Computed example of a mutant assay.
Amino acid sequence: MSAIKRYFREEAKVQMLVLGHPKPSDFYLSVWQTTRSAVPLLIWRSFLFLVSLGVVLASLILYILASKAGYWFIYLTHWGLTINTFATGFAVAVSARSYLYGPIVDEEEELNHALDVSVHGVNSLVMFGLLISASQPSRMWHIYQPLQFAILYVIFSAIYYAAGGVDASGNRWIYSVVDWSSPGMTIGVVALTGLLLAVLHFVVMGLAVARNALASKLFHDSVTVHGQEGVPLRRRPSQLHTSNA
């Protein structure tokens, strides 16, 4: 219990609201590895990115073939897929940057069933895979990030309704439970969704803590990849030549 209190006491600090983190290696080294190579996470993240991109493209192409491409952009699920693709893409970029140029230091540097399952299920599995394979922390105060995303979509849906927008079937709503012709019920659904989002954020925090604890238990003290920030991830050819000499 004391460990839990200590954890939340640390997370509740106001400085946790910012995006800074003292260990840059947490963003390109997996908690599950015992080396300082950026390759394992680069390969894994590349796979997750390709899966995300494939689902987005497959979904969008089907909408284009059905001559309903414009409606693809009105669904929250598709917004989520796009965010997932960007998230995995940036993760690949971070890993690739670390592999090609060395450690990042603290200073700032430069419409069928299968598709339905993919856009609602595979995206969750992809983000879960991204979470459990990394080392970066999940901050309590960073709940403002998913809330911002949700609020932006709520505003969009209201503007879309007010402008006379319809879904691919001609309905005045994008989702039947978010029907702005019944604003009272819609606001209630939005509030309940916000509460659920907060709960899920704490679930993600718990998964990140469990991930670190499990990796530490499995590898014990051999997990030293995060001990020395700025240590080269791999030797350069010139270094190998000097060493052999």
Rank of each mutant, 00 (worst) to 15 (best):
G188H: 10
G188I: 04
L196N: 10
L192Y: 02
T193M: 10
G184F: 12
V189L: 09
A208M: 04
S182T: 00
L192H: 08
F202G: 04
M205Q: 09
T193S: 13
A208S: 13
V190A: 15
M205R: 08
V203P: 03
A210D: 02
G188N: 14
H201I: 10
M185Q: 12
S182D: 12
L196V: 10
L197P: 09
G194L: 08
V199R: 07
R211C: 01
L197I: 14
V199G: 06
M185I: 13
V199Y: 03
W180F: 08
W180R: 01
A208F: 04
N212C: 01
P183V: 08
T193L: 06
A198C: 14
L197H: 02
L207P: 03
L196T: 15
A208P: 00
A198N: 09
T186V: 04
G184L: 14
V203K: 02
L207M: 06
G194C: 12
A208W: 04
L200E: 13
V209E: 11
V189C: 14
A198G: 13
A191K: 07
V199H: 03
D179A: 07
V209Y: 11
L195M: 13
S182V: 05
L192I: 07
A198L: 10
A191V: 15
T186I: 06
M185Y: 15
R211K: 06
S181I: 03
M185L: 15
R211P: 02
L207V: 10
D179N: 14
L200Q: 12
D179P: 14
F202N: 04
V204Q: 01
V209F: 08
G194F: 01
S182I: 01
A198M: 12
G206F: 06
L207C: 13
G194V: 06
N212M: 08
I187R: 12
H201V: 12
H201Y: 11
V204C: 03
V209C: 09
M205T: 04
A198T: 13
G188A: 15
L200V: 15
I187E: 05
G188D: 04
G206Q: 02
L195Q: 02
V203D: 02
A191T: 11
L197N: 11
W180C: 00
A191M: 07
V189F: 15
L197T: 14
M205Y: 04
R211V: 01
A198R: 03
L196R: 11
L192C: 12
T186C: 08
V209W: 09
L192V: 12
V189I: 11
R211T: 01
L192D: 01
L207I: 09
V199C: 13
V209I: 09
G206M: 03
M185G: 15
V189G: 13
F202E: 00
G194S: 08
T186P: 12
W180P: 01
T193P: 02
G184W: 14
D179M: 07
L197W: 06
S182M: 08
L197F: 06
A208Q: 07
L195W: 00
